[in-house]
Simulated scan of single mutants.
Amino acid sequence: MATPHALRDSAPPATPKTGVIHPLWVRVTHWLNALAAIVMMLSGWRIYDASPVFPSFHIPPAITLGGWLAGALQWHFAAMWLLVFNGLVYLTLNLASGRFVRKFLPVSPRAVLHDLIAALTGKLSHADLRVYNSVQKLAYLVVICDLIVLVLSGLAIWKSVQFPLLRELMGGYDNARIVHFAAMSLLAAFLVVHLAMVALVPRSLLAMLRGR
């Protein structure tokens, strides 16, 4: 008769759990945030071209949204309200459910460096999409902070008189525009990297569409 030890040795290797990876509320808020961020970015580029922060740098009109300054402003403000309210729902549910801590924490420089090297050498596992690696954790935390900075710097520009403290925290109106532009550039870089990672691991897109 086989011993319990032998039975354990002959058992098949454990496989990742099946089931829901992203609950419905995560998927809905994720796609609404993505829509709002992209619309704000494209319309923001049109607004930027109307009064460039850096006079020698212009964004090709073909990749902007709005057609003209007034149209771009309408798209920008509409997407802003969607981003703010949907973002608040996303953060509130993440914190209330404990998902924020489970998914994004802890993260350390050593763990990020380890996973970054593993990713660059093709040794980073994506077997269980429920578990974020340290590079993902850092990227998502950075983009959440970046979106908050985008909203606050945008308020400092849009309502400069109504929010003098916020304007001064940004270093004045002109500096607030630079902060806003830098935060927008960081968001654009994140989207490029994020799409590249999705292309490398297509299952992550399916999980965000159907939840599993």
Rank of each mutant, 00 (worst) to 15 (best):
L129G: 10
G98A: 15
A96Q: 08
L32K: 04
V192C: 00
Q74K: 10
L35E: 02
W81A: 06
D115N: 05
F181D: 03
P109M: 12
T92R: 05
A72T: 00
T64A: 09
S10F: 15
L65R: 05
G19K: 01
A111I: 10
I63N: 04
A196E: 14
V112N: 00
A183N: 06
A11S: 13
R177T: 00
A72G: 01
L205P: 03
L206P: 10
F54S: 01
M80K: 01
S185P: 04
L7C: 07
M197I: 10
R8M: 13
G19Y: 03
H126M: 04
S56G: 11
P109T: 08
A6K: 11
G67T: 08
M208P: 01
M41R: 00
K17V: 15
S153F: 02
P60C: 10
G19V: 02
L42V: 07
A176E: 11
S97M: 03
I178K: 06
A62K: 05
S43M: 01
D115S: 06
P60N: 14
R110Y: 01
A37D: 08
S185D: 14
L200Q: 13
T15L: 14
I144K: 04
R110V: 02
A119N: 01
K17I: 14
A6R: 11
F57C: 02
A70T: 11
L91D: 06
W158D: 01
I21C: 13
T3I: 07
H76P: 04
V28N: 05
D128M: 09
S153Q: 02
S43E: 01
W31E: 06
G87S: 07
R46D: 04
D9K: 12
N86Y: 11
W31Y: 08
S43C: 02
H22K: 15
R110F: 04
M197Q: 12
A37Y: 05
R203N: 05
H126E: 02
L166R: 00
G71R: 06
M40T: 09
N86Q: 12
V151P: 03
L83N: 00
L42H: 03
N175H: 04
F85C: 15
L65M: 11
L116Y: 09
A199W: 07
P55R: 00
H30Q: 10
V39T: 02
H114W: 06
K137G: 10
V101A: 15
P109R: 06
M197F: 13
D115Q: 04
V101T: 15
L116N: 01
I144S: 09
I148L: 08
I47T: 02
R46M: 11
G19C: 03
V131G: 10
A156N: 08
T18H: 14
L113M: 14
W31R: 01
L69K: 13
R212C: 13
G122E: 09
I47Y: 04
V20A: 09
A34W: 08
L129M: 09
A139M: 11
P12D: 06
P52W: 01
V107L: 10
Q136N: 05
P16N: 01
I63C: 01
C145W: 11
F190M: 02
Y90E: 13
L113E: 14
P61S: 05
P202K: 06
K123Q: 15
Q74V: 14
M197K: 08
M40R: 07
R212W: 15
R177A: 02
P164I: 06
G171P: 01
V198I: 15
R212E: 13
Q74C: 07
P202I: 08
P109K: 05
K103I: 14
R130A: 09
F163L: 13
Q74E: 14
G19I: 03
G122I: 10
W25F: 09
